[in-house]
Structure formats: C-alpha cells, structure tokens
Amino acid sequence: MEKINLICIECPMGCNLEVIKHKDIEVKGNKCKRGKDYALKEIENPKRVLTTTVILKNSYLKRLPVRSEGEIPKSLLFECIDYLNKIEVEAPVKMGQVIVENILNTGINIIASRSAEKLP
C-alpha cells in the first residue's frame, strides 16, 4: 500500500488529498468530484493548461495571449513553449480562434485568449 499526498489545483479551495493505492486507488480529502478526477490524473499522467503568448503582427499589441484548449501533459510544457515562441500571428484575431492545431500531436489546439484588431 502506497500513500501519496497531493493538493488539488482544480479550484481555489486547494483541498488536501490523500491518495491510497491498494488494488484500487482510493482518494480522500476531496470536497468535490473534480478532486478525485484530479488525483487520479495526477498519478497517471499529470496534465496542465498551458498559457503563454505568441508574436502578433499588424496590431498595436506586440504579443497575443494564447492558451491550450484542454490540458496537455506536463512533460510537454517546455516543448510546447519552444514551439509557440516561433509562431507569428497576424491581426485581426478573434478570441477562441485556433492558433495552432493539435500542438505536438497532443490532440489539443492552441487558441487565442483575446481578440486583437488590426492596425487601421
């Protein structure tokens, strides 16, 4: 039997979770269902939403904030950032617009976090 202590990051509550591995995996300390899901995922394959910026052309903004539409494996965060630091986007951009499709074959799209009008 193995015990792992985690702190849930699904919401600002920050529940202290205790994960006990017998034949099954038992999660204690979570105040909602998301806590259990988080713990299971965190043990198997930790994932995070990635937020960063990409170069924006033809706008008064120099950077466009972007995020991953879903979670990507934690181990790929730096590779994704390197990839995105080479991307250039041209205004106009709409919030939610796909900037990179299926980044590094994760099945996850990178989308714009805001709209940006083009320069007049």
């Binding site: 600002p12 937020t51 919030m95 976090s113 805001r114």
Partner: peptide, 25 residues
Amino acid sequence: LQQCIHNGFGLHIFKQQLTGPEYAE
C-alpha cells in the same frame, strides 16, 4: 486582467477556468 494571461478566472461566475483576457473580453 489583460496582462494576467494565466487561467483560473471565472470559476464562480462562469463555472469554468478562463484566462484574464477572456474574462475581460
């Protein structure tokens, strides 16, 4: 909010995790 590009905004109001710019927009 425009410079807070990380997510975690809007859990109470929109029941989802938005970035700062998304919440503002």
